[in-house]
Nucleic acid binder design. Structure first.
Lengths: 334, 334
DNA sequence: CTGAAAGCGCTTACAG
DNA sequence: CTGAAAGCGCTTACAG
């Protein structure tokens, strides 16, 4: 079925396009009788105005762009849900694009958002651009966008609205909690700074925790590679093989945590270590497998990020905000 | 930064808008010298044409709408990924909207897609509309959309392109496999037809399997409620309490499967039953927990659905296609 | 309260 | 090979 236009409605109603437009945009300005009649006709004809035409005419947009690494990871899945809820509540549409943690994809995503002339962008950078010396390019792309952007989860050192977790503190808390439980040799499996500036923060948190506990760092217990299950698996496997007699492990995101679990279960040493992961790992509670983690409420982060963007769109000159979210230690025993 | 328009570029290059437009749409028609010059200027100015204006002018769209229940469920997460890959490959944008398995949200999503004048829609219906007697409304909305739609996973008995799994056969296979392993009392936890027509198919598969095995159905072993973890949990709990001495359980989606696991682990009877779920349940392999499931490759379903939509857009008069995907039994032991 | 006209940023048939 | 003009479906300042 072909879409009707405002002219079709105007003709059917015997009025001008202007009047039809008014019943949609400022109904109080049109006489009740004609308004009712036009509304009736629009309804019968299932008329829906074209957002394309309206956006062009009004020089606005009704869609928000969302760029995330991938939706498969539960952390980002929840984040996305938080975003979605706010977007729906505000009658906006959501243009989705993943960047798969790759700079190239990231750039394409930003270009696409520009082409689509979105109202604003919620952006989880694929890469830690400062660390890989690509700041110029992202910065240019971001400026070229011509719309507000909120940077989520991964800071790229630009003067813009941002929101992320206090991961330094989270890891420090984890370390101190383990020490308190009697652990002095704590292995640390992390990603690296190129992918994610948080890797640095996390490592700092680890060191601060040890320092505060009066424990000197043992380099052999520190693994910093990719934020992937496979890396977590290999790191933990190597750690076990080296027999460094550590008694606890901290893994710095849920993928690494899964890798840890894979390794210890494969080795039949699931109960050999105390483990704290950053982020909850799904299924464990359900299977009644004891599990400690630093809870980072990514739904809430998504929600707040979206709210921040919407407020930025409304007040472009508002002061820049950088939100730091707290995490909390959750111990699940059965 | 304000977005530049084609007029800005034309002025800078000292040519008409027409010529600028041509270098974007049919470069071969413009003299090489001027083309190069214009391209250079566009590049320097970081000019990106507005999709909004182009779409309005060309009376086309460059975005595909995707309506899914929720992205949190791994089954739909994978489906979505399959869709996304095809959409990206075809240089299209993705407008996302979830319906949360609710008819109301579904209608809003369809309205939104219409407003946005998308090129086509990939649609997982929230509800089994024929069963709840709301066919009229969806049908009208679908027609009003004015663009091709591919119906995914849940058939709603409309004459349109569809794709779904052969779940009847899947469940039948599961039953026969269990019987072969010596099980004669097989509990069956399913959703209901209002939500999902597949519930009927699955139940049929269950009955066919039993029949073929010469086993008569025991109604007390059949639970059909919501496709949710909580229902799976309650159903399994009740089944165990009733001491019906069944030895195997089939759960009809991954949420129900999780509920089953929750119940048996809570009761400390994880090894008491043979279990086959529809869809893989994440984490189990990693934790080396034996698990049998009917593999339904939802990534592939998403991919094929998207391909089907794109082909439908290209050839509107092509014959309607209804794709039925096969599943396979996977046994994971350690 | 209503409408004619200009404009949003593009495309394209037509004329040169 | 190039450009002026009309048009896509809306909105809105202006005039009545």
């Amino acid at each position: 079925m072909k879409n009707l236009t405002i002219s079709d409605i105007a003709r059917k109603a015997g009025v001008s396009k202007t009047t039809v437009s008014r019943v949609m945009n400022s109904p109080e300005k049109v006489e009740e009788g004609t308004r009712k009649k036009i509304e009736q006709i629009m309804k019968e004809a299932h008329y829906t105005p074209s957002a394309t035409a309206r956006n062009l005419s009004k020089q606005i947009s009704s869609t928000i762009g969302v760029i995330v690494p991938e939706i498969g990871n539960a952390f980002f899945g929840e984040l996305f849900k938080g975003i979605e809820d706010v977007i729906n509540k505000n009658d906006l549409s959501l243009l989705y694009c993943s960047n798969e943690d790759k700079a190239q994809k990231d750039f394409e995503a930003l270009d696409m958002m520009k082409t689509q002339r979105v109202k604003g962008v919620l952006y989880v950078p694929a890469v830690n651009y400062p660390a890989v010396r690509m700041m110029g390019k992202v910065q240019k792309k971001l400026e070229a966008l011509g719309c507000p952007v909120v940077c989520i989860d991964r800071d790229i050192s630009l003067h813009m609205d941002t929101i992320h977790f206090d991961d330094r503190k989270a890891v420090k808390t984890a370390v101190l909690s383990l020490v308190k439980a009697g652990h002095h040799k704590i292995a640390f499996i992390n990603g690296n700074e190129e992918k994610n500036i948080l890797a640095i923060e996390r490592y700092e948190g680890y060191r601060e925790g040890l320092k505060e506990a009066g424990i000197s760092e043992d380099e052999r217990l520190v693994y910093q590679g990719e934020y992937q299950q496979s890396y977590g698996y290999l790191a933990m496997k190597e750690l076990m093989e080296k027999e460094l007699d550590f008694t606890a492990v901290i893994t710095c995101n849920n993928s690494l945590g899964r890798g840890y679990l894979q390794a210890v279960h494969e080795a039949g040493r699931a109960d050999a270590f105390e483990h704290i992961s950053l982020d909850k790992i799904e299924m464990l509670d359900l299977l009644r497998i004891p599990n400690n983690y630093m809870l980072r409420d990514s739904y809430e982060m998504g929600r707040q990020a979206a709210e921040m963007l919407i407020s930025r769109i409304a007040f472009p000159d508002k002061k820049i905000r950088n939100i730091l979210l707290e995490t909390s230690l959750v111990k699940e025993t059965f």
